[in-house]
Amino acid sequence: MTTNAAPFIFGSETFETSYTVFGDLKSGARPLVVLNGGPGLPHSYMLPHADLHGTRGRPVVLYDQLGCGESTRLRDKPASFFTPALFVAELDNLLQHLRIALDFDLLGQSWGVTLAIEYIAAHRPAGLKHLVLVSGSPSYPLWREALVSLRAQWPRDFRDMLDRHEKDDTTGAPEYQEGLMQFYRKHICNLEVWPPETFTTMAQMGEDPTVYRTMLGVNEFSMTGTLKDWSVIPKLGAVSCPTLIINGVDDEVPDSCIAPLFHGIERARWVTFGLSSHMAFWEEPTKYIKIVGDFLADSGLKNDTQAQEGIVAFVL
């Protein structure tokens, strides 16, 4: 494992992207680049993907997107600075810096799904061989609707409590935060004891929530950021490589949000993990790593005819 920083020039400024490589990028094995969620969540919670190096010998690149973790912080930037185009440019710069742009795989989780699609639509990368999209909605308006439906499934007194604090702008109150954690323990990570890496990510994001709050909002229920009306559904046709789509049966990104990905990407497979929510890589790690590893090792769907006839959605 090696950690370093890639200089990134954007406009007239130079920033740094902190990244960690598990394995040897010169080994000849195709590397996997992992895009974390948020936006603004450091990569710590995505560390299970490093197992693809240990079990498959595949180099894995994890990095902190600008504004979080060990990368350059952006506390003083205006809201207009935080656009998908910024993070697309950062990703492209990292690929060029690592000299892997001609042969790589890409995995995006949550917001990372949006970033992956935006990158592909902007650059049409010939070097991208496989794409994995994990628990991310291609449309934030669609996701907002889905969250309303999920919230409606909870008891009335629970919903009334959330409504009251959101109306009074007291979402920092312990009662509200405890309620939010109840929701997260069902729809984000259903493990009785959360892995320390997830708490590390949350603590780092809480220390500097600039990117998250600017682009998303206070939380998923209060999407007031620059992404609240964003959709990449019109851009899904740009994806031409074999694609694996993943979500969990209790995911906060439910099937209604995943379906447009499955139907909009021609060469797609969809797997729903039956014991997971938003982090199948923590909730069902052995099965998750096997399925992702097998997909990346395969040559994928061989041609368009096979893609049209052979794509399946199934529950594990």
Rank of each mutant, 00 (worst) to 15 (best):
M215Y: 01
F183L: 13
V218G: 06
M202C: 04
L191H: 00
R185S: 12
M181D: 10
P209Y: 06
T226M: 14
T226G: 11
S222Q: 15
G172C: 05
F199Y: 14
I188G: 01
Y184R: 13
R213C: 02
Q204T: 03
M181P: 00
V193D: 07
S222T: 12
Q177V: 11
Q177Y: 01
N219D: 15
T214N: 10
D229Q: 14
N190W: 05
T201K: 11
T198I: 14
L191F: 01
L216A: 12
L216R: 09
P234D: 12
K235S: 14
A203Y: 11
P196W: 11
F199H: 14
L180E: 07
I188Q: 01
Y176L: 01
E220T: 06
L191D: 05
N219A: 10
P196S: 13
S222A: 15
T224M: 08
V193C: 04
I233G: 02
S231L: 10
T214W: 07
W194G: 00
L227M: 10
N190L: 10
V232K: 00
P234Q: 14
K235A: 14
C189V: 03
E178H: 11
Y176R: 06
R213H: 07
F221R: 08
L216W: 09
G179M: 12
Q204L: 14
M215V: 06
V193H: 05
T200E: 15
W194Y: 02
E197H: 03
V218N: 12
G172Y: 05
G225Q: 06
V232Y: 00
F221E: 08
L227V: 04
T210Y: 05
V193S: 10
T210N: 01
L216V: 13
Y184A: 14
A173Y: 07
L227F: 08
Q204P: 02
E197L: 13
E192A: 14
T214V: 12
S222E: 15
M215F: 06
I188E: 08
T201C: 15
I233F: 10
I233H: 03
T201W: 08
E220Q: 10
Y212S: 11
L227A: 07
L180W: 05
A173H: 15
K228I: 01
S222D: 14
P195V: 02
K186Y: 08
T214F: 00
M223G: 03
G217E: 03
K228H: 13
M181K: 12
G217W: 03
E192M: 09
L227C: 02
T224G: 06
V232T: 02
Y176C: 07
C189S: 02
P195M: 03
K186E: 09
G179P: 00
P195H: 00
G225R: 08
R185Y: 04
W194E: 06
M223Q: 10
T214M: 11
